[in-house]
Design a protein around this nucleic acid. Structure first.
Lengths: 184, 184
DNA sequence: ACCATTATGTGACAAATATCACCGTCATCC
DNA sequence: GGATGACGGTGATATTTGTCACATAATGGT
């Protein structure tokens, strides 16, 4: 729980922290467990206590990884969360994974009781946005080699956490190309 | 101003609208005018009244367009706005462009006086996030042709608004390839 | 320990795309 | 109204990357 608190974008008074903690749900998934799948509505934000979540979508029968959520970070499917439309993403545990779950409705209810907590909501959005920004810059790097080196530089934990074949689609290149790029 | 109000993520009471309108700044740029450049801190959100803004970054001497902001939409550099670190982006008017500017500090000040307005801040973030999501999906589509068709389908106004040359780096392909893909 | 399965490395070849060079068209500005 | 420069189209060629095939680790389960 301390890691959750530390990951919040703003410091909290003990009273506010009590309120927030009361709406946190502990959830666990085993390896391969599906946290979210296409067609469902996403109405929650996940905090990774330990383990690893993979976001992916299917494109012409192939899985394309769009994000990996590492321990200590928040994640969700924005598009669905914001619009409350059904998602097109899969969210899957790559290892046994423990989460704290924040439901949107609970969070909105909390805002009624303590408007200061709205700053948390904004802050979480900003964190998630910053993640997206990094992701975008990655994909705009020209060559396969540049993309790999960009991850090496900006997200070294990711290289340790995910197998090469999963990384490939995240970089937008084939598994073989990643292998070759890495060996140089 | 009506278009601005219409673009807000939540409906406003007349009283709240008065408060918000008081902090809006009208700003105009001529063709080629720089709204933001690397090294500056971005502390504002822009609403496009008319005209067109281009976001780009330099990568090995070449300009790479990361976003085009069309009339009726909000835009900003998140990464800089959220972190208050200097930006690495250029934001430039491609035509004579008129904006409403919302300064972060003014907005935060408003939250103190009317906590309900925080919902606007969150809503804007969500809109911007949804834009990013579309952008990401675009870049993950495999081929040059798929990317072009994706824009045709999802952002047809964009094709009308920006010249092919500028679209190329946005799609992550060369100008010539866009030309060939389009001719089929 | 053994087998089955999954992950990774690598060569040969095919396909997609970039690059370079050049063309014509169109708008803009003295 | 002629020069200038931006834009888009197209061919020839070079590079990059994907694909297929197969070999070689690792890993997990019983």
């Amino acid at each position: 729980m301390d890691s959750f608190r530390a990951a919040l974008p703003v410091p909290l008074t003990p009273a506010h922290w009590q309120l927030l903690r009361a709406i946190l749900l502990p959830v666990a998934f085993s390896k391969g467990g599906q946290v979210l799948r296409p067609g469902q509505r996403c109405d929650r934000i996940y905090f990774i206590r330990h383990g690893l979540l993979r976001h992916y979508l299917l494109h012409e029968g192939k899985e394309i990884n769009t994000h990996f959520a590492l321990p200590g970070t928040f994640t969700t499917d924005f598009a669905s969360l914001a619009s409350q439309q059904p998602t097109t993403l899969y969210l899957e545990a790559m290892e046994p994974t423990a989460l704290w779950v924040l439901r949107r409705a609970d969070m909105l209810g909390l805002y009624e009781r303590a408007a200061e907590l709205q700053a948390i909501g904004r802050g979480l959005m900003e964190q998630l946005l910053a993640q997206q920004q990094v992701r975008l810059e990655l994909l705009l790097r020209g060559s396969a080699a540049e993309r790999y080196r960009y991850v090496q530089l900006r997200q070294p934990e990711l290289l340790r956490a995910v197998p090469l074949r999963q990384l490939a689609s995240y970089l937008g290149v084939s598994r073989e190309t990643v292998s070759r790029v890495r060996s140089v």
